[in-house]
Design a protein around this nucleic acid. Structure first.
Lengths: 271, 271
DNA sequence: CGAGTACTTGAACAGTGTCAAGCTTAGTGG
DNA sequence: CCACTAAGCTTGACACTGTTCAAGTACTCG
């Protein structure tokens, strides 16, 4: 427990630094977003690997930044597809909804990720995207992106990579859903979140869950009661500390063991 | 039962016609494959929507057709990524394998489908592809495809659509794995196969399963015993007739009811 | 501060998984 | 062509994980 508190202190420092960094960049970017000045370029977002001039071309097609408040939809299933959305700051969930009223969460999305890729095939969105916290997105008109991809090979390649990664990621999630137990799923989920926060400069061992237990359950193919019980179990075992939405990972290595014991590829923890 | 036999007769006729059709096309195509003359152009394969001249450009980059015998690998996880593969005839499964020796089937692939899309992000294949029957594929060097996409907007758009569809499809499969019972999963699986056979000109109500019960189970997140039991149950209820690998769907509407009762979107049966 | 939502926990139950045995089929080699 | 073998399949009995239903608690937001 004492160890946990020490760690937490270090984390707070780190988070403060990162927050400052982000704040600076946001200030510098007003009033128009600029891929060329965007901190997400290191994060597999579209501008990754582009040179100065090319980035500016990408800036040219990106519509003004849009704010999406917590609880608001970015798009709904059935909406006509015009644009992809790069998530600048915030947190989204995407979900399918069936007529019977059951929602199924297909993903949680963080800074730097691209939303709407599954809509290209239909010319309409086939899932819903809703902000789980106040967020900011860059709207990228798809037809213009296609044009630009024809001019800038590096952009084209990066775009293909992003789509491909989405496919590979889904396959890993399918693996999780097919053959993991509740505790393994949850451990994999926490490790995944941890890694994604870390890449973005946040603490990998302490973070706020933006989603409810029910949403986690929906994503992992479990009922919310099972999620709750499993979190409690992890806490009893000293692996984590949970206080409502605040999560501290006290023993990341042992958490990884839970996943790797039966699924040594570790593929399931990938972003 | 008598109804089933009548249906079967009709199906055999249909299948013969289709086989003939395919045979003609195959003959016409020797010794080099030609997208411009390929029957798969109606099937969401890459040449879909391309005009004559454009198709020929695509022909230009496609390497000679390759045969893959049943049981042979088309590629393995870890192989360097150079090409995508369009499946001309035959049947493949793709699967992840973990070090612990567990395989996990991520997809079954039929004529007209594109394999290897998940490898773009890593420059190496992250799953294995193995032929479940003697097959023929067109190898499409990826870097040349990217070049050509920059020249032919219609090809670029079609390629993006194919990737997007793969993502949307995976989301539907995740939905199946997250919230369906064994009988619903299997019903959805059979309907899916049925529709894919139908689109390809084969009977939607009678076909050979190319995969084992274990592979079906792996794909659907069930054990092979459960697959076997559920098939037996469906047979007892008169929904289907199974004889080893030969499958007859006697009551497609009722099969659909099983899926739609609890999951009315029906999304899960999509291609 | 109050109402509604989210969360935790318990107990009973159902659906799959596990283990085991026996059967069928396909493929191999004599 | 037949016999043999290995792989695939079916079925039963039982165990166990996760779900369901229910009750109570804690938080959040207006």
């Amino acid at each position: 427990m004492i160890g946990a508190i020490h760690e937490t202190g270090a984390i707070n420092n780190m988070q403060q630094k990162v927050h400052k960094l982000f704040a600076n960049i946001v200030d510098a970017r007003y009033p128009k977003p600029a891929c060329s000045a965007c901190d997400l370029r290191d994060l597999w977002c579209l501008p990754m690997g582009l040179k100065g001039q090319q980035s500016k071309q990408l800036d040219g097609i990106i519509n003004r930044r849009k704010r999406v408040k917590r609880g608001e939809y970015l798009y709904r299933a059935g909406d006509p597809f015009r644009s992809l959305y790069a998530l600048r700051t915030g947190f989204f969930k995407t979900f399918l909804s069936s007529e019977s009223g059951q929602d199924l969460v297909t993903g949680f999305h963080m800074t730097g990720e691209l939303l709407g890729l599954d809509a290209i095939c239909n010319d309409s969105h086939c899932c819903n995207a809703i902000a789980l916290e106040d967020s900011e997105i860059c709207e990228i008109p798809y037809s213009e992106l296609e044009c630009l991809c024809r001019e800038i090979p590096a952009l084209q390649h990066q775009f293909h990579k992003i789509m491909s990664r989405e496919i590979a990621r889904d396959h890993n999630l399918m693996a999780l859903l097919s053959c993991m137990h509740a505790d393994e799923r949850l451990a994999a989920f926490l490790i995944n979140l941890s890694q994604r926060f870390q890449v973005r400069g946040y603490s990998p061992v302490q973070f706020h869950l933006r989603m409810t237990r029910g949403e986690i359950g929906s994503y992992l193919g479990l009922k919310l009661e099972t999620v709750s019980r499993t979190l409690s179990k992890f806490q009893d075992e000293g692996l984590i500390s949970v206080q409502h939405k605040l999560l501290i990972l006290n023993d990341l290595p042992r958490l990884k063991q839970i996943v790797e014991r039966n699924h040594s590829s570790g593929a399931l923890c990938k972003s």
